[in-house]
Nucleic acid binder design. Structure first.
Lengths: 127, 127
DNA sequence: CTATAATATTCCTTGACCGGCATATACAGT
DNA sequence: ACTGTATATGCCGGTCAAGGAATATTATAG
């Protein structure tokens, strides 16, 4: 196993990480709350541990797992250029709608476009 | 196939998306630049298209593929709570270092900790 | 209309991963 | 020492996705 995406491709693993957002958890807590058999939990935790997503501390018989943010930060870094991409495109869309707006209101009362018009035109395709 | 993570688990697909950041590309361009056989490119593009990561427009015999930011925005949204998590932890670390700092300088000249000390201790692991 | 370029699809094989089950290991209480 | 609890590991079988080769589809040119 390698990339963060492969690790996170498994829904149970994402659920475990989301659960650890609240606080550290033992294996048994995860098992009961997520309703998956214990060996499966241990295996997923092993994968997450070896990939650095979680760390474990021993507490008597149980092990407490907690989040380690670093790999998710790297994922965030991978996403950064795409964030720039879509913010650029949102800006472009907004400028485009502003031009439309100016064309529809041929030098009328005000130049500020309404938020209503923007929200309407920005709706998704194929809903 | 379903979640964005499964789609992005494939390195070639990530490479395609990164390539489309610059501008739209035809299948042939992707094929040559990424050095992967054409059927593989078409298959990956199909997966990306059906998951909404890219859209295609026809230009004579070729199809031009371009980025569609929406699924990546959803990934960004999934990441949001974790971002809050690690920024909280960075804040906590910083407060901790500030306390250390005050302890090391027992009521000395100033109370403002130096940026230098913070930058040093906040440096990344394993560079 | 035929030849050719660009892209998509089908079939097949191989390999990886996940879940289930059984079992092993580690620790605590009595 | 024995028993119970908590977690980890090994093995197996089903499933699914990726890659390769061949072929089908679509569009342009001559």
């Amino acid at each position: 196993m390698a990339s963060a995406f492969e690790i996170l491709a498994e829904p149970h693993r994402r659920a475990i990480l989301a659960m650890l957002l609240a606080s550290e958890r033992s294996v048994g807590e995860i098992e009961r709350r997520l309703r998956i058999p214990q060996p499966a939990v241990s295996k997923h935790l092993r994968v997450l541990r070896e990939a650095g997503f979680v760390t474990a501390t021993v507490d008597a018989q149980r092990r407490l797992y907690r989040l380690n943010p670093q790999p998710l930060q790297e994922l965030d870094a991978w996403l950064a250029p795409f964030r720039r991409f879509w913010s650029l495109h949102l800006d472009a869309l907004e400028r485009h709608l502003d031009r439309q707006q100016r064309a529809a209101e041929p030098s009328a009362h005000a130049s500020r476009p309404t938020n209503k018009a923007r929200a309407k035109s920005a709706s998704r395709r194929k809903p």
